[in-house]
Design a protein around this nucleic acid. Structure first.
Lengths: 379, 379
DNA sequence: CCCGTTAATGAATCGGCAG
DNA sequence: ACTGCCGATTCATTAACGG
């Protein structure tokens, strides 16, 4: 086991008492057995960049590299895919063991292997959340002019099961995209230039090093500060480097000791980003719940005050218990800000916080402004 | 069997003497048995848009409480993955029978089904040439904010075997793309507006009608004038309409008679293009949009870095999600580079790209310089 | 007829918590 | 496990409407 300088074994303080995974380490060896040795349900996310179909790289071809003719060919082909499928089932199963029930899995691949990976992970019970396209700004051209330029790779993002409560940093993703929802197609350049790790002779340290920007978006979309990320095909440690930068814990598994050594030295040079609060913008959903009645209790709104919608088409009065009463052609409506807002509009539901407004200096202001004031006082 | 006005049974003049498929017809019925009944090796290309097996459960409501009109047809319901896989193996096998040895297969799908389709077609001996991403300019948003906006669909383009001599219109594709090799990611809008077929009540004639532009590129990339294209899930006949326009022969198979009737009438109105017009003029590329967050992801700016205006009267710090945080006498401001720039100056609006500067070698440089660098990478 | 505003809609696997 | 309620959530485009 290789250790980083800043080795930590922070016992995570989550609700369930579980054994923590050994964080910020590289484990050298076979990822299937090493993942099975990790405590069950101990990591928040798995990012995997598995080898492509070995049939293509020749590893699964016959030793003499001959191709079989005729009837035998189909069997041979089946055998190759079957071997790759078995390998895929094994590591996806082991990852499932290490992954928390509410954790998520990312896998990246190309058309050579991604269809097999996707089908198998569905068979194992993973629930696909998105497939994400990494569009390359600078792909390798198709030199022979026989196909379209293969200008993308595919990632699958999946939860452990259909009803898992996975984490998605919706607001952070939206902020990264200038207030528009982040889409399933991402544009990044290949890993080249100074980011690309090379040995003393100038040769690539690893043939398929991924760009850090890609991992930056993956990790910030689906993990929180302090979470643990497991990468079973660690290579030269892009996942670990970005995890450290974003103040996530990481576990890398790598079979080749040479890669692991490069990765360890690389990660040692990474500086974690500025203060944690810069990394974790408060999401609306994680804010404390403030019932409307609290505003009345605190005197921010008086019983008897009239509330309006933005166009003053609807109005309702505040009762002392924090409910509203309003009337339209359908009759009188009593209840929560949400229920009355919905009833007045004839809709099945309504967010009363943004629908109802109070009058301040002749202007209408949403009652949500008052809630924000209360939330600010709670810190 | 439904017949078009211009019914033809041109005996194809290819090298091998083979029975020709009955072209420019819609066959109503089960595609598996009908494809098996076609002469073996009689079609040049298969384009298939099979059911996606969406597995939708309850209703999805938009934020304004209207209901999303999703796919709820009987033909998209399968008991489980095994049933869907059996169905997929059956139709892919039958298509293989009808397809010429040097013909190619196209299948379109989403993450719900495309991994299973891809794995099965590999198992059957098809050889994947490309996976093609249809990027949608106007996808439906993710209304609940729980995932990335699903903004693309995937097509697989495959030859019948590894050593097949398939056809690829390399030059035509390059011409369509301003003299650059055509890439594997294609950008098209959804089929809406006047192109979308509707019944007398204004309802969609088919829930999943594909845009003609998509088929235009598919057909011109991998068929020649006079070739025969088979679509086993014909629906309302987009494949037939574009094939006729491009002077290709077509065979449609459709189970629902209603769809077939709509398709036949639609195709009857199509005028074949003049020989000279068979290639569309290059489409103009629009200037790419680069959100500020991309600079942070790509490491051009670090979280925690301070930005200034030209005179250093204002400053703000970068957060990991690409927003800024700054403070003045009015309080703290959070948000996009534009929003915070405006708030710091007390102005209604501000172009953050030119307002904010970063420090490089003691000098201030506008962040727009970094954006230009990213745009340059995108061509 | 033009312009500004409002409404409609697209292959969608789209809660969470208290009680 | 089930029920009920709180309350969070949308982009690009076209068509319809209103003045």
């Amino acid at each position: 086991m290789l250790k980083t300088p800043e080795t930590r074994t922070d016992s995570k303080t989550k609700s369930k008492v579980r054994e923590a995974a050994p964080a910020n380490r590289i484990l050298v060896g076979d990822c299937v057995s090493l993942m099975r040795d990790l405590p069950a349900g101990s990591v928040d996310m798995v990012f995997a960049d598995p080898p492509y179909n070995l049939q293509l790289s020749g590893d699964l071809m016959r030793p003499n590299h001959t191709r079989v003719d005729g009837v035998d060919e189909e069997w041979d082909r089946f055998a190759d895919f079957a071997t790759y499928d078995r390998f895929t089932r094994d590591w996806l199963g082991a990852a499932r063991h290490a992954l928390k029930d509410d954790g998520t899995l990312w896998v990246i691949g190309s058309y050579h292997n991604i269809f097999r990976v996707g089908a198998i992970l569905q068979d194992l019970g993973y629930w696909i959340l998105n497939d994400i396209i990494w569009r390359k700004t600078n792909p390798m051209p198709n030199f022979r002019g026989k196909r379209f330029t293969n200008a993308h790779e595919t990632m699958i993002w999946a939860a452990k099961s259909q009803d898992a409560k996975y984490f998605f940093a919706y607001e952070a993703m939206k902020n990264l995209n200038e207030e528009l929802q982040m889409r399933s197609d991402w544009l990044f350049p290949l890993c080249t230039g100074s980011e690309r790790l090379r040995d003393a002779d100038g040769n690539k340290a690893h043939p398929t090093q991924k760009p850090e920007a890609l991992l930056y978006r993956v990790l910030s979309s689906s993990t929180r500060v302090g979470d643990t990320v497991l990468d079973p095909f660690f290579g030269t440690g892009t996942t670990g480097a970005v995890a450290k930068r974003l103040r996530r814990n990481w576990i890398g598994i790598e079979r080749e000791k040479t890669y692991a050594e490069v990765a360890l030295s690389r990660i040692g040079q990474v500086e974690p980003a500025a203060e944690a609060e810069l990394l974790e913008p408060p999401t609306k959903r994680s804010q404390p719940r403030v019932p409307f009645g609290w505003l009345v209790e605190r005197g921010l709104l008086q019983p008897g005050t009239t509330l309006y919608d933005t166009r003053r088409r609807h109005s309702a009065r505040i009762k002392a218990d924090g409910t509203l009463v309003g009337a339209n052609h359908l009759g009188e409506h009593n209840g929560s800000i949400h229920k009355v807002g919905a009833a007045m509009q004839g809709l099945p539901a309504c967010n009363g916080w943004t629908f109802w407004h109070y009058v301040e200096g002749g202007q209408l202001a949403p009652i949500d402004m008052l809630r924000q004031r209360v939330i600010a006082e709670m810190h």
